[in-house]
């Protein structure tokens, strides 16, 4: 969704920042502060969390800081649902993300064995569709 949302916003985003954190410039406003908050929010170091939260509030405001805390909380739930039930990545997403997953090393993550990798044909189709992916996702996603 980061890729398609950035396409919708006409932003050029470096997806490697998801895997490599602040070592990469994502191209997204205040990315370093948000990534550091996400990283701290997964741990138990209260001082690190406080510092990261305050930085987000300083750069983006208190409302954004609360929204960021909500997203951090939300995805600590969602990853456990996915990993705890062995669901496969949705078919269309598998096709559209084949290259990204390979480039970023995501295929090595836990739970990858629950999904069947797409074949060469679907991989090519996914690659061709990439420039139109945000509109496509809007069409194939839940309505």
């Amino acid at each position: 969704m980061l890729r398609v949302s950035s396409q919708s916003n006409e932003e050029d985003v470096n997806l490697a920042s998801i895997v490599e954190g602040t070592a990469r410039d994502s191209g997204i406003d205040a990315d370093k502060a948000l990534i550091e908050f996400a990283e701290a929010g997964l741990g138990d170091d209260g001082d690190a969390i406080d510092a990261a939260r305050n930085t987000v509030a300083e750069q983006l405001g208190e409302d954004a800081m609360v929204d960021a805390a909500g997203v951090i909380a939300n995805f600590q739930r969602m990853v456990r649902i996915a990993d705890g039930t062995g669901i496969a990545l949705d078919d269309a997403v598998m096709m559209l993300t084949a290259d990204i997953r390979e480039d970023l090393g995501i295929n090595a993550y836990g739970g990858a064995e629950n999904s069947t990798e797409v074949g060469t044909g679907k991989r090519i189709i996914g690659r061709l569709m990439t420039p139109f992916v945000s509109r496509l996702i809007s069409r194939i996603a839940p309505r």
């Binding site: 985003v13 406003d29 996400a38 409302d63 954004a64 990853v79 990993d83 993550y109």
Partner: peptide
């Protein structure tokens, strides 16, 4: 108050760190 890419950047980073 966050843009959608900002929201998804956080979501993606949490998921990646969780090895999901």
């Amino acid at each position: 108050a966050l843009s959608r890419p900002q929201i998804e950047l956080i979501a993606g980073r949490v998921s990646s760190l969780s090895d999901c």
